[in-house]
Computed example of a mutant assay.
Amino acid sequence: MVHEDTAHSRLDERLIERCEDVPANPEPGAYVVIDTMHFSNTVIELLARGATHVHVPDERGEEFDYRAGHPDALIGGGRTAEYDPEDGYDFFNSPSYVQDIDVEGRPVSMTSTNGGRTVATLRERGGEDVDVFVGAPLNARAIGRFLRRREHPVSLVAAGYQGEIAVEDHVGAALISRYLDEIPPTETEIERCRDQLETAKGPDYVEKHAIRCRDVRAYAMNVNGRAVIPELSGDSLVRARAPDRSASRERGLAD
């Protein structure tokens, strides 16, 4: 993880370590939900590929109700053992899987056990007093620079995994915090982060399936690879416009 030893970063005061630690009455400000494996990256990729928005239901299964009212919507849910979407769904929570589906100009509905639940929790508890964003190592620089221009305080919410701390989410929080404080990590530090991200869910995780290998190596480890910033508007995540990147650059993976 990026260390804060010499940097005057405010990570400790910004970090909420798990979804379960979100306050019952969040203070006004911006909250960045970080679920590196894989909700954050899937949302970023869907918006980068032209989805109009990503609706986040309160519970898994409500995506079908959403599609009933939006016939052109694509919906995401669980996966089979063969890494196909469960019956009735168009995709599952995987940034590399959604590379191959046509979302241009279409709405999407999906949630997840960790990241989606955290977005819904903040939406319910914070109401109009909080602004919710989605971040990851993938868009750390873009979202850090974007939120640095705001007057309100920023909290970094690591979604965690089934109630436990997730290392990969804390890596994302550390990176975003550095960009918030205008203390960008060095290339050596970024390489250390990539090493941690590759093994965060266990040394054999990338060998589980080709899709998971791509999810980790092409997305989770791709620090600053996207400039897309998802922002919650109503019940859906939409694309906020980053002031420091042109729209054309935001549409593709950065060099």
Rank of each mutant, 00 (worst) to 15 (best):
T52Y: 13
H3Y: 06
T42H: 09
L46C: 09
T52E: 14
F91S: 10
Y219C: 07
V32C: 02
H170G: 05
A7C: 02
A120L: 09
E207R: 10
N139V: 01
M1G: 02
G29F: 07
P230Q: 10
A68Y: 13
V103H: 08
D35H: 13
D100H: 14
D131A: 12
G135P: 00
T52V: 15
L47I: 09
E250F: 04
Q162W: 09
N224C: 10
R125F: 00
D204Y: 09
S40K: 08
N224D: 13
Y89H: 10
C193A: 09
V167M: 06
L47E: 04
A120P: 09
G202A: 13
H70G: 15
V103T: 06
V33W: 00
D12F: 06
G127Y: 15
I143V: 11
A173N: 04
I229H: 02
L253P: 14
E104A: 14
N25Q: 15
E207K: 09
I229K: 03
D35K: 12
D215G: 06
T188Q: 08
R18I: 05
R18A: 13
F146K: 00
S248Q: 13
E63S: 00
H53Q: 13
G115Q: 03
R226F: 01
D12W: 04
M1I: 12
H152K: 14
R106P: 00
S248I: 11
T186R: 01
M37S: 01
A218F: 01
C193D: 03
C19N: 13
D181P: 04
A242Y: 12
E17A: 15
L138V: 03
L197I: 00
V238S: 12
I176E: 03
A242D: 07
T52D: 12
L232C: 02
P203M: 06
E13Y: 11
V171T: 07
H70R: 14
S9D: 10
L147G: 00
N224Y: 11
R249E: 04
Q99K: 15
R192N: 08
L180H: 01
P243Q: 14
A220H: 08
A48Y: 05
H38R: 15
S246L: 10
G163C: 02
R226W: 05
E20L: 15
P184S: 03
R145I: 05
N139K: 07
I183R: 09
Y219A: 10
G160A: 07
I229E: 00
T6R: 01
D129P: 06
E191W: 02
G115V: 00
E4P: 10
T186V: 10
H209C: 08
I101C: 14
G78A: 13
I34T: 02
P185V: 06
V56E: 15
E4W: 08
H170A: 04
E207A: 04
L253I: 15
I229L: 02
D58G: 14
G234C: 05
G202E: 08
D235I: 02
R60W: 01
